[in-house]
């Protein structure tokens, strides 16, 4: 099988080019030569010290944002894969199943001071998001479970309903808070934005996402078996229930951490794994890493569009991912006999 390697190499080079474009384009005009002078100087110590203004724009504003977009897009994509394998249906996704909005509700409750800070602020926020997401997905999962089987229709409906409920909680606590900038805060939590990106914010989401990626890679074989069906997997001696619970916790942990930094960005985990499956098929050892790279590329471009679409203004990036994602979701919904691969 040469093809997966080719696809992998192709996607990785596209990702490098994408990050290159993401740091070169922004709300103000910077010459490409200046941008790459900064990168050459910062990364390889080459060339003279760049202009301090361009240096700050490229190295401290645009690059952390591009890296955050990669972590976010990649993380949401592999969590999409995990959810889809869990329910054996390509329509599952952290945003659609209510994890993201649950995490948003948790994070905004903490952000607005309704929850006590247990640890430091940087740690409590993802923890609150995790708790909110876990509460939401647990309810969705319990509602959708029908004996041992999970009804997909019920799962989606419960997910949509919980999303709406959690979004109302977020909106309610935000509007009832003394926060002066209410509308913006609601937009941030419900539609997501990468505008707060700083190097200092990156370690927690990056480490959590890397953990998620590692776990998914280690679990590649059991996940493949789970796709075939729970009974065959059980027949192979796999602890199916434990695996499923583990997947839910993992998905919620990664989603919660990401949402705590950037709000709820939807549909990335729906579009990307589907596209990657068309290229390399269903085996997880290929699907997981390539979905990660694909998601990073997708969200980088979505964010680039979000900050350049309207002159002098920034859109919440979730608007753009929803604009791409919802038609996609509807098309998938029509495809009744969708099979993985």
């Amino acid at each position: 099988m040469k093809r997966p390697w080719l696809v992998g190499a192709g996607l990785t080079s596209v990702l490098v080019l994408t990050i290159g474009a993401a740091v070169a384009v922004g709300s103000t005009a910077t010459a490409w030569a200046d941008v790459y002078q900064v990168l050459a100087h910062r990364l390889f110590g080459l060339g003279p010290a760049p202009d301090p203004i361009v240096d700050r724009i490229v190295w401290r504003l645009r690059l952390p944002r591009a890296v955050l977009a990669c972590v976010m897009g990649g993380g949401l994509s592999i969590i999409g894969v995990a959810m889809q394998t869990l329910v054996r249906n390509p329509l599952a996704e952290p945003y659609i199943l209510g994890i993201s909005s649950g995490a948003s509700a948790g994070a905004s409750l903490f952000y607005l001071g309704f929850l006590p800070p247990l640890l430091s602020k940087t740690l409590t926020m993802p923890l609150a998001a995790f708790a909110g997401g876990l509460a939401s997905i647990t309810i969705v999962y319990l509602v959708a479970r029908d004996g041992v089987r999970v009804s997909v229709a019920r799962l989606l409906l419960a997910g949509v309903a919980m999303s709406a409920l959690m979004a109302s909680i977020t909106s309610f606590v935000t509007f009832s808070s003394p926060e002066p900038d209410k509308l913006r805060a609601v937009l941030f939590w419900l539609l997501g934005s990468l505008s707060g990106a700083r190097w200092g914010l990156l370690p927690i989401p990056a480490v959590t996402t890397a953990l998620g990626l590692g776990a998914m890679l280690v679990l590649a074989r059991p996940l493949d078996a789970l796709l075939v069906g729970e009974e065959p997997a059980q027949g192979l001696g796999m602890p199916v229930e434990t695996l499923k619970r583990g997947l839910i916790v993992l998905a919620t942990l990664v989603t919660g951490t990401l949402v705590a930094v950037s709000g709820a960005i939807g549909f990335v985990g729906l579009i990307v794994p589907h596209a990657v499956r068309l290229l390399v098929g269903v085996p997880h050892r290929r699907l997981v890493p390539l979905s990660f790279v694909g998601g990073a590329i997708f969200l980088c471009w979505a964010d680039l569009a979000a900050r350049t679409a309207l002159p002098g203004q920034e859109l919440p990036v979730g608007i753009l991912t929803a604009l791409c994602g919802v038609p996609f979701f509807l098309a998938l919904l029509r495809q009744r006999a969708y099979q993985f691969g």
Binding site: S27, I57, R62, R307
Partner: peptide, 18 residues
């Protein structure tokens, strides 16, 4: 001279405009 009547400025705009 910004076209938008109520613009939201970016950090880099402020850096550039000094």
């Amino acid at each position: 001279d910004i076209e938008n009547q109520a613009p939201t400025l970016s950090d880099e705009y402020v850096l550039q405009e000094k």
